[in-house]
Structures are given as C-alpha cells and as structure tokens.
C-alpha cells in the first residue's frame, strides 16, 4: 500500500510542479473554445429549447478537458520515464503491476478533474449552468478520467518515442473527443455520422455528463454508463495484462 501511495504522490507532484503547463494552460484553452464558439454560434444554434448554446457547451468542454488531460498525464509521464530511463526505479521496486496501474490512473484522473473543475469555475463568469443531477456528473467525470488515464498508460507503454505518442494523441484521442458532441448534439448530424457517433465511447461520456447538468441527453444516462463502464473494464483488463507481462518494460 505504501508503494502505491508513494507512486501516486510522485505522479501528483510531477504534474503539480509544472501546474501552469498541466492545469492552468488547459483551462485557458477551454475558455478560448467557449468564447469563440459561443460568440460565433450562440445566435444560430439551439440544441435544447431551454438551454442557451453557451451553457450547452460548458459540460462538453469540461468533459473534454478532463479526458484530454487525464490521457496526457499518464501517457507523458510514462514515456518521459522510459526515455530518460528513470522508469527503472519503479521496475526494480516491489510494486505490483496492479498498484502501478492504479497509481498512474488515479493521478491522471485527478489532474483531469482539477482541470475540469477549473474550466467549470471560469465558465461561471460567462454563463450559468444548472446542476440537475450532480451524482451523474461525478460518476461520468471519474469514469471518464480513469478511462482516458488507462488509455494513457497503454499509449505510454506502447510508444517508444514522443512522436509516436503525439500520433496516438492527434489521430485517436483528439478526433474521438472533438467528434463526440462537445460542440453539438448528434441529433443535428446526418444519419450516417449520427450512427458513427454511437460507436464513439467518448460520445457517451459527454452525453451522460451533460445529463447531470441539464437532465437532458441524446441517449439514456444508464445506457451511457453501461457503455463507458464496459469500455473502462476492457481497457483496464488490457492494461493490466500488458503490465503483468512487462510489455515493452521488461525484456
């Protein structure tokens, strides 16, 4: 347990020491999205009758920030440890692969949640957002952060170089998050793209998360919970198996 807590604390300290880059900067980025999209689209788009577009944007932006930062935390920490060689200190230690996974994912989720909270707080200056079902907000925030933190561990283990990690981020994570209903409802999409969106697990995270704010969503939050929960379990099982085998970590 002390090994797990130490690794968790180390991972939290790692991002906290560069908090401007890891927490403050993503908050500013999300705020810019809010300002630009709400300015351009507020008068043209209305997704739900009683929800202004700017307010509609907030949950999506918060969730997108949680997901992207959770992924960035575990993946960048692991690749950095591998490239500098300092990963050896964790591999030499009597830390189980489960504790290793849990520490990286918990720290990643925490960074995601901190950024998400920051985004939410700064958006309050621009729009009011209802909190209809806070428990759904919490559940999807935690599950989303943990799931992308887990995906970050996979990417960090798999990538040998920073550009491989960047490819993972730019060709998988970014499209999945941007094409998930952050800026729109999938009901506004043509049928084909609406169907495609239903295969994107990030859509369910954002839709379920948004349900917590407005009690309105494209699909039932229970369905979203089931999809996200199954994806999280599958990704976690894959990550644990990779760590157990020492894939790309032990020769």
């Amino acid at each position: 347990m002390i090994g797990f807590l130490t690794l968790l604390r180390k991972e939290i300290l790692r991002f906290w020491k560069v908090g401007f880059q890891t927490v403050a900067a993503p908050v500013v980025t999300a705020l810019l999205y809010l300002l630009i999209f709400s300015h351009v689209l507020a008068d043209h788009v209305r997704v739900y009758d009683d929800v202004p577009y700017t307010a509609f944007l907030v949950p999506g932006l918060v969730m997108m920030s949680i997901l992207q930062n959770a992924f960035a935390n575990s993946s960048s920490s692991l690749i950095q440890s591998k490239v500098t060689g300092s990963v050896v200190f964790m591999l030499l230690a009597p830390i189980s692969y489960r504790a290793f996974w849990a520490a990286y994912v918990a720290a990643a989720a925490l960074r995601g949640l901190l950024v998400g909270l920051g985004v939410y707080l700064v958006t309050l200056a621009f729009t009011g957002v209802r909190l209809e079902a806070p428990l759904w907000i919490l559940v999807f925030a935690l599950l989303g952060g943990a799931m992308l933190g887990t995906l970050g561990v996979i990417a960090g283990i798999w990538a040998d170089k920073f550009d491989q990690l960047a490819a993972f981020q730019n060709f998988l994570i970014m499209p999945l998050t941007f094409l998930s209903g952050v800026f729109y409802s999938i009901h506004s999409l043509p049928p084909f793209w609406r169907e495609v969106s239903h295969w994107n697990p990030v859509f369910y995270m954002i839709d379920g998360f948004r349900h917590g704010f407005f009690a309105l969503s494209d699909v039932s939050p229970w369905k979203s919970l089931a999809v996200v929960g199954v994806c999280f379990v599958l990704l976690s099982a894959l990550t644990l198996e990779l760590l157990r085998r020492g894939y790309k970590l032990r020769m």
Binding site: I2, G3, T6, L7, P94
Partner: peptide, 12 residues
C-alpha cells in the same frame, strides 16, 4: 525527494 520516493517504493 528522490530518496524519500525511493524509500516509499519499498514500503518505508
């Protein structure tokens, strides 16, 4: 900090 972290990895 490095040595404290190292100790923690070993349960100390």
């Amino acid at each position: 900090q490095t040595l404290r972290i190292q100790s923690g990895y070993y349960g100390i």
